[in-house]
Amino acid sequence: MSTANSLDTSYDTATGGRPPLALIAGPTASGKSDCAVALAQELGRRGRRAVIVNADSSQVYADLTILSARPTEEEMDGIEHRLFGAWDGAEACSAADWARTARATIADIHADGAVPILVGGTGLYIRTLLDGIAPVPAIDATVRDEVRAMPVEKAYAALQTEDPERAARLAPADTARISRALEVVRATGRPLAYWQQHTTGGIGKSVTLYPAILLPERQALYARCDLRFARMVERGALAEVEALLARGLDPDLPVMRAIGVPELAGVVRGTCPLDEAMARGAQATRNYAKRQYTWLRHQPPEEWPRVEFESFEIGNITAILYRHFGLT
């Protein structure tokens, strides 16, 4: 991924210039959506139209307007947003699905002479878009069913024998990743690391990337998570969950497992008091923010700027971003 001095620098693809792609990543409730809108407005003042592209795995679903904290029309403040609510909840949106659509969306934005601003906190989405996806062959259903029926302790012990390198990198209780690694090595005869070395479809080498990772002070972030969930309930999250349950969707679909849905479903069904559900939902939000924070601090390239701050004053944060993006 190449970088240039300024996000609003002109480029010419005919002479090898790479179109710009801004990326604002951060954990939930870190203020990244507001920063993206402010950045788009600043580019507009400089004569460059910008379009915000969603990279959040909950905000892709049309059914999760409130519980995903999808920006409202007022919060979009006249800036075009794409891939928000673009998937029906009945269809799971994998990282590969999203990356394929995001690639086409970003290409369209570039073709219009605009600057795409990618915003979200789903690390797998971002990594798949930029680096590509491993071309793992389809897993035989018999192998998959056999692996996924195994207790996690047994699957982890098997992985330690069949792919010890991958096992060493995983927590012994990480059921999903252990199952995936074990089914890949059993079905293909090669470890997952082999396939990941042959990724395809990434756009990282064809754009000029301007990344920034928002890392607010943790306790302040967790307080915002609590406040956010309470406001979701005030805005009608219970009705949103009730409408979702009425669809009778497969409970294993991502939209049914999104933060807030399982917690508030008990309230809708009359099996859980609201105050208990709100406490559990707020805790789930904090836990998710913590996982995102850890991933974003350690997994992206070291040269990506980490923007650490204590105050959520948008002007102060965007001033830092503008410096990183060469706009000051």
Rank of each mutant, 00 (worst) to 15 (best):
A171P: 00
A230M: 05
T65G: 13
T175Q: 15
T9G: 08
R306L: 14
E313I: 11
E162R: 15
A38P: 09
A96S: 13
F229I: 12
L170S: 03
Q197W: 10
G204T: 07
L7F: 01
E74C: 06
T175G: 04
T208E: 15
R218M: 14
P151G: 09
V53N: 05
Y222E: 13
Q299V: 14
R257V: 01
H298R: 14
L182E: 07
L118F: 02
F229M: 15
A284S: 14
V53Q: 02
L321V: 00
Y288M: 14
T13H: 14
E302V: 13
P300A: 09
E302N: 11
P172V: 10
V307H: 11
G16H: 08
S68D: 00
A289Q: 07
P305M: 03
G202E: 11
R247E: 10
L23A: 11
E276G: 05
T13M: 15
A176T: 13
S30E: 06
H324G: 13
G204K: 04
L238N: 06
A181Q: 12
L67K: 03
I79S: 03
L249E: 05
A157R: 04
A246L: 01
L124P: 00
P137K: 05
G113R: 11
I24H: 01
D112I: 05
L238K: 12
R46K: 08
